[in-house]
């Protein structure tokens, strides 16, 4: 069984194993009739994650912390904030003392997840932020127009079928000069698993089916922000490498985060044989010297502001009063 796996590895060593170029439908269709993700399945998975998730997940905690850190850089305070899906608990726990938040709305598509956050909130006696809990879908945001100062979405938006639509709705929910902060998983995420899955499936089943969802690329993130109508867009990327004892622990972790596959066209059957072959290939291709297997998580952080007259903007074309030639005359000789 293993020989087959290794054979294909050596054969493929000369060129990069497989280029996964799943088309990013959600960037090309404006009226999305096409559903890539099964949102109901995702909801169920997040229900399950609410029970499996440990109190502190280092990855989620780091991302949430990094995201909230951006609030420290703003002089503005955000009295009312909306916190969307993904790693809710990590955000709600560490949001205290950031950005002068007085009212917080916590929203997720999974009732159990919201319930868990609510229990957590009541246990922590965190009375200085007035928190309310809502079950809602990012694709159908139930928030009034121009009502919140801040929208935070930590690792949730990459599961939406219509990402631009979801971002436009967040933009509409913001007050003028409101801030949109989001972290999504980028295309480099789980590249090792993608490769291992593909090879194992080709070998055992003679074909491939998408096992890992298509994700946004970094270059798309900026376009998304401008397309949704945000001003002063900012995008930056962080890569985290998490080490696991084996690929099986990686899958357990994904399950506990609610980040398992939810493609609506996925092949619901995963043969035990293929799964084990994937783990074996993962181990033989990527294992490091200490015996652990690394997994890459690429997180794209997006920041955008809703339009307001106080924001800086470029001057009108042709409105300059000084010629660049004169500037060069003035300063050109010095350098």
């Amino acid at each position: 069984m293993m020989r087959g796996a290794l054979f294909s590895l050596f054969r493929r060593k000369t060129k990069p194993p497989f280029c996964f170029s799943a088309p990013l439908f959600f960037f090309t269709t404006s009226t999305s009739k096409l559903n890539i993700f099964d949102r109901q399945l995702k909801r169920n998975q997040r229900d399950r994650a609410a029970w499996l998730m440990p109190q502190t997940d280092p990855l989620l905690h780091t991302v949430a912390h990094n995201l909230l850190d951006r609030l420290q850089d703003c002089k503005k305070t955000f009295p009312s904030a909306l916190c969307l899906g993904g790693s809710l608990q990590a955000v709600t726990r560490s949001i205290r003392g950031h950005g002068g938040i007085e009212k917080l709305i916590v929203m997720d598509a999974s009732h159990d997840m919201v319930q868990r956050c609510k229990n957590d909130y009541h246990a922590s006696n965190n009375e200085n932020i007035e928190t309310t809990f809502v079950v809602g879908d990012e694709e159908f945001l139930p928030i009034k127009e121009s009502s919140v100062d801040l929208v935070i979405s930590c690792l949730g938006l990459h599961w939406t079928n219509d990402l631009p639509g979801a971002m436009i709705q967040s933009m509409l929910a913001l007050k003028p000069d409101g801030l949109f902060l989001a972290a999504i998983l980028g295309g480099e995420t789980l590249k090792e698993l993608r490769i291992a899955c593909t090879i194992a499936q080709m070998e055992r089943e003679g074909g491939i089916s998408p096992r890992i969802s298509p994700l946004a690329q970094v270059r798309d993130a900026g376009n998304l922000l401008t397309r949704a109508g945000f001003n002063l867009p900012g995008v930056d990327v962080d890569e985290y490498t998490v080490k696991y004892p084996s690929a099986l622990e990686l899958i357990e972790h994904l399950r506990a985060m609610g980040e398992t596959n939810a493609l609506s066209q996925m092949n619901a059957m995963l043969k035990r044989d293929t799964a084990l072959a994937t783990a074996a290939i993962y181990d033989s291709m990527f294992a490091s010297e200490d015996g652990t297997v690394p997994a890459t998580f690429q997180v794209i952080y997006m920041t955008g502001w809703k339009e307001h007259s106080s924001q800086q903007k470029p001057k009108r074309r042709g409105s300059a009063t000084v010629s660049f030639k004169d500037i060069q005359k003035q300063f050109g000789n010095q350098s």
Binding site: Q40, A109, H111, V114, K118, V134, V135, G136, D137, F140
Partner: peptide, 12 residues
């Protein structure tokens, strides 16, 4: 409204 949490997912 379940347990004090309004459920505003269209499917609900």
């Amino acid at each position: 409204i379940k347990n004090g949490i309004p459920c505003l997912v269209p499917r609900d």
